[in-house]
Design a protein around this nucleic acid. Structure first.
Lengths: 251, 251
DNA sequence: ACATTTTTGCTTGACTTTGCGCAAAACTAT
DNA sequence: ATAGTTTTGCGCAAAGTCAAGCAAAAATGT
């Protein structure tokens, strides 16, 4: 069997990407060619930026990055740019000595990436959120209570009891649906209860929502429109602005 | 089989991150190479800031980098097999309808890997522990309160208040030192307070400790010997058995 | 079919990595 | 402290790896 140069490049690439690394000797044997050829190939692929040449062989280009992250973050792909801009804007609103509640959920998770105020205090009911907060060196508290599988959010009566003593200056909440009549809605009744109390105990509650959330209704309402300011990327209907304060973030 | 330098780095990193520490000898044997090479690798990874080199081996960077704990956390890595057996035994003690408290810490983290009883209820003050529990599909609660940086444990008055209403049937606790006179000790006063209350509210509190923990004393005592049963791999001194119930797990 | 260009494989000298021995340094226990 | 053990860093020789040069083989163009 004879391989074209391009085919060999492809083979080398797939081997290295699949296994993350390979030695010159391995590749030479696998592709049934000399080590000199493999070296030349690796040099070429390295110059193309397709792999990283190292002493003894080569590794895939993204060797050291990523690997271990929450399954929560895997779901963050949708509306990534929009959520990022909303998050960036919200983070800029946090001032010294603010007492901030951060709701569990993917949109608010993004928010934490942009927070840099070390002088505020943060409370969350999201396990992943709590970890992110302390890994950024921020003062973080977590609500106690039952853990909901999948979303890794703390819910239940204990969480609500925990919330009752707290008086947040700002709260950043996620939502599944925003509707003129039904208000802010979410499919899970336990999460809704926690959201409801968190909003009531906050001086300034904000809802972080990209434009796809509007005109959607889920089973449980946790707040009416007028109770929260909405931070969004685009408003599909001006009727909403007569009901509450809305900030449109430009992308 | 020949390993690329980068692959060896990756292996070392994953081993150290998984068990928090490893000795030069262990790594040399596991990776089938000489101790000299491992030392050179550890020096390189240390300079890259990926791990922390300590006398005898290396520890993961995220762990208790605080002052006097370095040697202890290396020991924790050293005693990997022993801790695994202790954890396996403890997991087998959990029965249906048990109400179980799991202390934060590396020893108890291992315990969760072996838990399979879906009919018990679990409470923990460790953020990482909480995630592990729900990812195994178990019913899990987390204490609320302030998050301690680095160890990701929930501590403080809120955590203690949360504990007061709970009556655990079993509690699995870690410790840094076990001593005839000073009892069970740990270097952190906030974590000690939480441990103390958790033990008091438990019907059967267990201490998971490999044999290196004996005859060591740290700054804060959180319980006396007679308050807890000890699960260990080897008892260095029979005097301890006159003070409390001790189960020796065979390796 | 023939000359030209490209690719391949091998050799060589330079360079890197590895494993071992040993003296110095670090840790432990008394 | 002091003696004993373990670990460490360094030099060095052996083994492994590399890029460059060169000639044979293969592909290409006329």
């Amino acid at each position: 069997m004879k391989l074209l140069t391009q085919e060999r490049y492809q083979s080398i690439l797939s081997i290295i990407n699949e296994r993350n690394a390979a030695t010159v000797a391995e590749l030479a044997q696998m592709l049934n060619t000399s080590e000199s050829t493999i070296r030349r190939d690796l040099t070429a692929l390295d110059e193309m930026g397709k792999i990283k040449k190292v002493y003894g062989g080569a590794t895939s280009i993204s060797q050291n990055s990523g690997s271990f992250e929450d399954n929560v973050s895997l779901r963050e792909g949708l509306m990534f740019e929009e959520k990022t801009e909303i998050a960036r804007y919200c983070a800029s609103m946090i001032n010294d000595s603010d007492f901030v509640y951060i709701d569990a959920g993917t949109t608010t998770s993004r928010l934490i990436d942009f927070i840099d105020n070390q002088n505020a205090t943060y409370v969350t009911n999201g396990i992943a959120h709590a970890r992110k907060l302390i890994q950024k060196g921020l003062t973080a508290y977590v609500l106690g209570g039952k853990l909901k599988p999948l979303t890794e959010a703390v819910v239940g009566t204990e969480a609500i009891a925990n919330l009752h003593n707290l008086n947040f200056s700002k709260a950043f909440m996620g939502t599944n649906g925003i509707d003129l009549k039904s208000g802010f809605t979410t499919p899970d009744i336990e999460e809704a209860s926690v959201k409801e109390v968190a909003i009531k105990t906050s001086y300034m509650p904000f809802i972080l929502a990209d434009h796809t959330k509007f005109r959607r209704v889920f089973s449980v309402t946790f707040a009416q429109l007028r109770q929260c300011c909405i931070i969004t990327d685009a408003l599909p209907d001006s009727k909403f602005s007569s009901e509450t304060v809305i900030k449109e973030v430009k992308i």
